[in-house]
């Protein structure tokens, strides 16, 4: 990447500290994370429509293609590689059980969105689950298996 303008930033990814790294001003966060080996963050549309690049920034889901790497200065990030707590292990087991991973391209974003659904602690109908994941495209499961998996996760925590 040709970069005339560099920005010096510090932040944390999955507990790992990045201090005083130089990022090109025009590079979005998803590209930067992937360049550092966090390739679990997938890129589909790079315009916020597909949801594959959804990560956690300071505890909230964001599209990493719609955040500049420079905007991550001072933040705490979590990517799919860092989804290793008890709740997310259960979510991953449910996704496996219902074959909700299939090709896996949308999975990092789907897992992040599922995490946010579960943290809201609301009991949702299948229609409401579909509405909640409407910001995440899946082109192979037909969504049925993903809704099955999320439904089981919700039932388990409520």
């Amino acid at each position: 990447m040709v970069a005339k303008n560099l920005v010096n930033i510090s932040f944390t990814v999955n507990g790992e500290r990045f201090n005083n790294v130089n990022v090109p001003s025009r590079q979005h966060l998803a590209d930067y994370l992937r360049s550092q080996g966090f390739t679990g963050t997938h890129l589909g549309c790079e315009q916020g429509a597909c949801g594959a690049c959804t990560i956690e920034m300071d505890g909230k889901a964001v599209r990493s293609c719609l955040v500049l790497a420079s905007q991550a200065n001072g933040t705490n990030l979590k990517t799919v590689e860092g989804f290793d707590d008890e709740m997310m292990e259960k979510v991953k087991q449910n996704f496996l059980k219902h074959n909700a991973f299939q090709c896996g391209f949308c999975s990092p974003g789907m897992l992040m969105t599922t995490k946010e659904i579960l943290l809201n602690k609301k009991k949702l109908t299948r229609d409401e689950i579909r509405s909640e994941i409407s910001g995440n495209y899946c082109r192979c499961t037909g969504y049925q298996s993903i809704v099955d998996a999320i439904e089981e996760c919700i039932n388990e925590i409520n």
């Binding site: 990447m1 303008n5 920005v7 025009r26 979005h28």
Partner: peptide, 11 residues
């Protein structure tokens, strides 16, 4: 699908 270069100022 990548932005053109720009200078960035955090204020």
């Amino acid at each position: 699908m990548k932005a053109a270069d720009f200078s960035y100022h955090e204020v």
